[in-house]
Amino acid sequence: MTERLVPYQPLDLQEPADLVAAIRQRRGGELINLDRMLLHSTPFSRGWNAFLGEVRSHLSLDLKLRELAMCGVAVLNRADYEFLHHSPIFIKAGGTEAQVNALRSLGQQLMPQGLFTALEQDALDLTIQMTKSIEVDRSLMKRLQEQLGNTRLVELVGVIATYNMVSRFLVALEVTPDQH
Rank of each mutant, 00 (worst) to 15 (best):
L68A: 05
L68I: 06
L68V: 02
L68Y: 04
L68Q: 08
L68R: 07
A69C: 12
A69V: 04
A69K: 03
A69G: 05
A69P: 09
A69W: 04
A69D: 05
A69N: 13
A69R: 07
A69Y: 02
A69I: 00
A69F: 04
A69L: 10
M70G: 11
M70V: 15
M70A: 15
M70R: 02
M70T: 12
C71L: 10
C71R: 06
C71D: 07
C71Q: 05
C71F: 12
G72C: 09
G72E: 07
G72A: 08
G72F: 12
V73F: 03
V73H: 07
V73P: 09
V73R: 08
V73N: 10
V73A: 12
A74P: 11
V75P: 14
V75F: 00
L76Y: 04
L76D: 11
L76R: 06
N77G: 06
N77K: 08
N77T: 11
R78L: 14
R78I: 07
R78D: 08
R78E: 11
R78K: 11
R78M: 12
R78P: 04
R78F: 06
A79M: 11
A79V: 04
A79T: 01
A79E: 04
A79C: 03
D80G: 15
D80V: 13
Y81I: 07
Y81D: 03
Y81L: 06
Y81A: 02
Y81R: 03
Y81T: 04
Y81E: 05
E82I: 00
E82F: 01
E82N: 08
E82G: 08
E82R: 00
E82C: 01
E82W: 05
E82Q: 10
E82K: 01
F83G: 00
F83R: 05
F83N: 02
L84A: 15
L84D: 13
L84E: 10
L84H: 11
L84C: 03
L84Q: 13
H85T: 02
H85G: 12
H85E: 15
H85K: 14
H86W: 05
H86D: 07
H86E: 10
H86Q: 09
H86S: 13
H86T: 11
S87G: 00
S87N: 11
S87M: 04
S87Q: 05
S87H: 14
S87E: 13
S87V: 10
S87C: 07
S87P: 03
P88K: 06
P88N: 01
P88S: 02
P88F: 07
P88D: 02
P88E: 10
P88A: 07
P88T: 09
I89R: 07
I89E: 14
I89K: 14
I89L: 14
F90W: 03
F90I: 01
F90H: 13
I91A: 13
I91S: 15
I91H: 15
I91P: 06
K92P: 09
K92N: 12
K92I: 03
K92E: 13
K92R: 15
A93K: 03
A93M: 01
A93I: 05
A93C: 04
A93H: 04
A93V: 01
A93R: 10
G94C: 01
G94A: 02
G94E: 10
G94M: 01
G94R: 02
G95R: 06
G95E: 03
G95W: 04
G95I: 01
G95V: 14
T96K: 04
T96R: 06
T96N: 14
T96I: 05
T96L: 12
T96A: 06
E97S: 14
E97I: 15
E97C: 08
E97T: 15
E97N: 14
